[in-house]
Every structure is written in structure tokens, then in C-alpha cells.
């Protein structure tokens, strides 16, 4: 029997039950978001927002909002979410200004701003975690590479709640999101409020990152926001199948990676990421063979 199934059903004594449930929730929401990330080429944006979480973790640790050994609390998650959404909104604001700016004008473009926020957040987080000390900050690698096996009831409940909100928001705002993602200027000219739509997707990325950090850490959670969508667009050119494939790829990748990690005794975050990389590469090969 698969160990992830044993863990999810509690057949192994419930040791990793919350790990599997957290990973599942994260996979479902990231799978849906990743299609937009890939189609809108927001990979680096996701990377920047993910790293913003590290600064948030530092603040949380210094304020003593973590439980023993660096486990996350609900106020802790909320504060990190504020951090991530703030950075996401700042990126969205810069890119909308960039769109209205003069062609060829020497200004900070979106990628420059992301680069700035990314290193600022990581540096701030590193200093604050150091200041907080290991009792509050936990092991720094667990924030960097994920610590899914340590997920507790708070993590799995928060992940389920956030995943529900993200999936509902994607379904509710599917029309403006889709038109905006397809062709932003045309969407605007047809009356879609694109600035709000962009902000919405950024905010959803922000909250998704807060929980995917538990699975893959700030460094690797970009994988969850990019690779499922990257695999899906290789396999289909139809809208509904692409979203279904994105979610399926994320769920399969996360569960297979977790299974491999439990059997091989490798760190779960990096194992999940490599599984997703393998799946995306295979999808790319299939797409190529079909003449994409």
C-alpha cells in the first residue's frame, strides 16, 4: 500500500496525516493558479512573492508568534499573508505603471522591482530569524526548503481554508481573469477592469505562497506555481482540459513526491519539486513529439 495513502487515512497511526492533507490542498490551489502563471508569464513574479514570505517569517519569529520549535500559528500565517500580498500588490502596481510608461524610457521595470523585493525580503528574514534565535525561529532550512512532514492541525486547516478561497475566487472571477490573461490591453478596451483583475491574481498568488511555503519552502515553492501549468499547456490546447491537467499534475506530483520521500528517506520538499520537474519534462517531450 502507498505510504501517502496510509498517512492520509491514518493507517500509519496518523503520523503524517496533516502533512498529506496540507500537501493536497496546496496542490489543488497551486495547480489552478499555475495555469495563469504560465499563460501570463508570471513565473518570476511568483518567485518574488514566495521570497517575500521569508521576510514575513522573520517578523513573525521576532514577534514571538511562532509556537515551540518554529511551528506556525494562525496569527503567524496571517502576518506572512499580509507581507506576501503587500509585495504582490507592489509588483502589480509597478507593472501597471510600466505598461503606461514611455516606450524605451529608462525606468524600473517589473523584473527589476521583483529582484529588489526578493533580496530585501530574504535578507530581512535572515537577520530577523537570527535575532529571534532557534527557539522561536526553528530550523532555517525548514523555511527555505519546506517542512511538510512537520505540518500539524493548524497547517492542514489553514491550507484547506485558503485553497477553498483561492479555488472559489478563480471560479468566481474566471471571466475577467481569462480575458485579462489572454490579452490585457484588449480586455481593458472592452471594459474589463484589468488593474483590479491583476491585483486579484497577485493577491491569490500571495496567499497561495504562504501555504505552499510549508510544502516546498520559499526557495522551491515557485515550482508549485509554475510546473503543473507548464506541464498542462504541453498536453492540451483546450481551456478546460488545461486547467484539469494543471490541478491533476500538481496533485499527482505532490503525492508521488511525498511517497518517494517517505520510501527513500529524502527531504520531502526537494523530492516533490524534482518529481514535478520530471513530470513537466515528460510533458514537454510529449508535446514536442506531437509537434507543438
Amino acid at each position: 500500500m502507498l505510504r501517502v495513502v496510509e498517512a492520509a487515512t491514518g493507517a500509519d497511526g496518523g503520523l503524517f496525516r496533516h502533512a498529506v492533507l496540507t500537501a493536497l490542498s496546496v496542490a489543488i490551489m497551486c495547480g489552478g493558479l499555475s495555469v495563469f502563471v504560465v499563460l501570463r508569464r508570471l513565473g518570476f513574479v511568483g518567485h518574488g512573492v514566495a521570497h517575500a514570505a521569508f521576510g514575513g517569517v522573520g517578523v513573525v519569529a521576532v514577534l514571538g508568534l511562532t509556537a515551540a520549535g518554529g511551528a506556525m500559528t494562525v496569527p503567524g500565517y496571517a502576518l506572512i499573508a499580509v507581507f506576501c500580498i503587500g509585495v504582490a500588490a507592489a509588483i502589480a502596481w509597478t507593472s501597471s505603471r510600466g505598461a503606461a510608461g514611455a516606450p524605451g524610457r529608462a525606468a524600473w521595470r517589473e523584473d527589476t522591482v521583483i529582484g529588489l523585493f526578493l533580496v530585501a525580503s530574504v535578507a530581512t528574514g535572515a537577520i530577523l530569524l537570527h535575532a529571534a534565535g532557534p527557539a522561536r525561529a526553528g530550523r532555517i532550512e525548514s523555511w527555505v526548503f519546506g517542512s511538510i512532514l512537520e505540518a500539524d492541525r493548524t497547517d492542514s486547516a489553514a491550507a484547506a481554508l485558503v485553497a477553498g478561497v483561492v479555488v472559489l475566487a478563480l471560479a468566481w472571477f474566471r471571466r475577467p481573469l481569462l480575458f485579462w490573461a489572454f490579452d490585457e490591453p484588449a480586455a481593458e478596451a472592452f471594459g474589463v477592469r484589468t488593474a483590479r483583475t491583476r491585483l486579484l491574481l497577485m493577491a491569490l498568488l500571495g496567499v497561495a505562497v504562504v501555504l505552499s511555503m510549508r510544502v516546498a519552502g520559499v526557495v522551491l515553492s515557485t515550482a508549485l506555481l509554475v510546473l503543473p501549468g507548464a506541464a498542462a499547456v504541453q498536453l492540451s490546447r483546450r481551456l478546460v482540459p488545461v486547467f484539469a491537467l494543471g490541478v491533476a499534475a500538481a496533485v499527482v506530483g505532490v503525492l508521488a513526491g511525498l511517497e518517494a520521500s517517505l520510501r527513500l528517506d529524502t527531504p520531502p520538499g526537494p523530492t516533490i519539486v524534482l518529481t514535478l520537474v520530471a513530470m513537466a519534462s515528460a510533458a514537454w517531450a510529449v508535446g514536442r513529439a506531437r509537434g507543438r
Binding site: L39, R175, L178, A181
Partner: peptide, 22 residues
């Protein structure tokens, strides 16, 4: 746009669906 997984009809429907309740 050309890599976008939508049909020609879906492109037209994007505009036709503006303002509809979700």
C-alpha cells in the same frame, strides 16, 4: 495569445461574457 489554450469561439465569448454575474 497564440499559445493560449482557447478556441476561436472562446475568444469571442470572453468579450460577450463581460458584465455577466459570475
Amino acid at each position: 495569445e497564440l499559445n493560449f489554450p482557447v478556441s476561436a469561439r472562446q475568444v469571442v465569448e470572453m468579450a460577450a461574457g463581460i458584465g455577466l454575474p459570475p
